[in-house]
Design a protein around this nucleic acid. Structure first.
Lengths: 250, 250
DNA sequence: GCGGCGCATTGACCCAGGTCAATTGCACCG
DNA sequence: CGGTGCAATTGACCTGGGTCAATGCGCCGC
């Protein structure tokens, strides 16, 4: 079972025999199901089709480009990086996935994973066979709705990288978004660990690693953040939000 | 009813009274339903929940940012541009939608349209109430699958803009993709009309309009294309594909 | 403690593409 | 047919951020 995380209660569904039907607290589907009431027999269905992965160690791949698609997965612990490599073998980071987030959604259309996914630290997953969860969704409208929403959300996330923003705007937005995502999981919004290397951040933001260094240094000089190796503390959140406002638009 | 288009047969489903249940030939859902066999009563359901829009003239909006989301729509004719405006009022073009393509999918997650959609020429739509089509999808697994696929596809399209590509790569990829999309609709892959202004292309590709001009001119000088106002002919498709290979990765 | 490794930082330089300012050219119109 | 207006083009110049090369620094094994 998932270790309890700071600031977040473990979720469980009382079954009528007094036992509890446990969902891992970070699983992206537990909240959806709990929020809409449930039909116990169907939650059982959902529970049964989950497969909790053994720990995946740093550097190990979860799937590779053009592998057959069969399952989506919610990250339970750790960080997953997705990337593609271009024809010259250069890596292009597509995204980072934190606990509670779902990987593999972009594989549905082609039935092959269109990118690689690798663990940046020890990772635990909940895997869901996609055919099975889709079938189940036909009987659980709430689940279907949740899947539609997850997919739709990911379309919107594209804008983050798509705009022609300055290096500073990108970096600020990256930090603010990370902070929000950690906060949504009940972790600190102001102090957290950058679990990815500078080169990965740079690559993701379509910047040079050198630029990331320089911008972080500038942010630190201006009192926006304090950085120590991979630990970061956001000191002036409003200023960061302001710097990111064109990217985040709210 | 939709006027027949060159190179594409009109689709119809024979009903047992000898009459035909017509789907507009460009509607994104007709193919999905026809390809998987059908249950006539349910196709009727789908047919009934379609609302064919009256013509929307150039410059008219289909929806605006933060409008309540209620329907997705397949483009039947014309081109739709989606865009957002940043805090300084500058426009950011998110995409162009040609006949057969579906707009509004990125609105599902928030229940509000996250962008504006405007007609670039006279546009005809098939609107589908989203709650209704979602409900219907629970009874038509093929339709649900199709919706999942459409959504998943749009996630992938993001990469197109996300990479750090050169102006030349972007422009070449834009032309190749347009060509493929027209070809998929049975139109010419080598001669077509750029239905959007240069500034829109530039904005979409995150380039300056001047750069688009210069690149098109360079392509023309090198014999890759012939451009006349908004008409374009692709003369050296292999060279364009080569120029776009890093973006398209295949 | 020492050497080596890999990530991160810093500095010097350069260039793709942005910006600004004209100019062209098509379309529409009275 | 000249005038008006907007999109597109062209040229001159500038700069954000990339590239390259060197250096720093925490960490690990020995």
């Amino acid at each position: 079972m998932t270790p309890a995380e700071p600031g977040q209660a473990r979720r469980g569904i009382p079954a009528d025999d007094g036992d509890e039907l446990h969902f891992c607290s970070t699983c992206a589907f537990s909240a959806a199901c709990l929020d809409r009431g449930y039909d116990k027999s169907r939650l059982m269905d959902l529970h049964v089709l989950v497969e909790h992965s053994p720990p995946i160690r740093e550097g190990e791949h979860i799937f590779r480009e053009s592998d057959d698609f069969n399952a989506i997965a919610a990250v339970r612990a750790g960080t997953v990086k997705t990337y593609v490599t271009d024809l010259e073998g250069r890596e292009q980071v597509l995204g980072f996935f934190l606990p509670g987030e779902v990987i593999g959604l972009n594989a549905i259309s082609t039935a092959k994973y269109p990118c690689n996914a690798v663990a940046l630290e020890t990772v635990l997953l909940c895997r869901f066979s996609f055919p099975k969860i889709a079938t189940l969704a036909t009987r659980m409208p709430g689940l279907q709705q949740h899947l539609f929403r997850l997919l739709s959300e990911d379309i919107g996330k594209a804008n983050f990288l798509a705009g022609d923003f300055t290096a500073e705007e990108r970096m600020a937005a990256f930090l603010v978004v990370l902070s929000r995502r950690y906060a949504a999981r009940g972790l600190s919004a102001t102090r957290f660990r950058l679990t990815m290397a500078r080169t990965d951040i740079a690559n993701y933001l379509r910047l040079a690693a050198e630029t990331v260094s320089r911008i972080l240094k500038r942010f630190q000089r201006d009192g926006l953040v304090r950085v120590d190796r991979r630990e970061i503390e956001l000191l002036d959140r409003p200023a960061l939000e302001r710097a990111a406002r064109n990217v985040l638009r709210n």
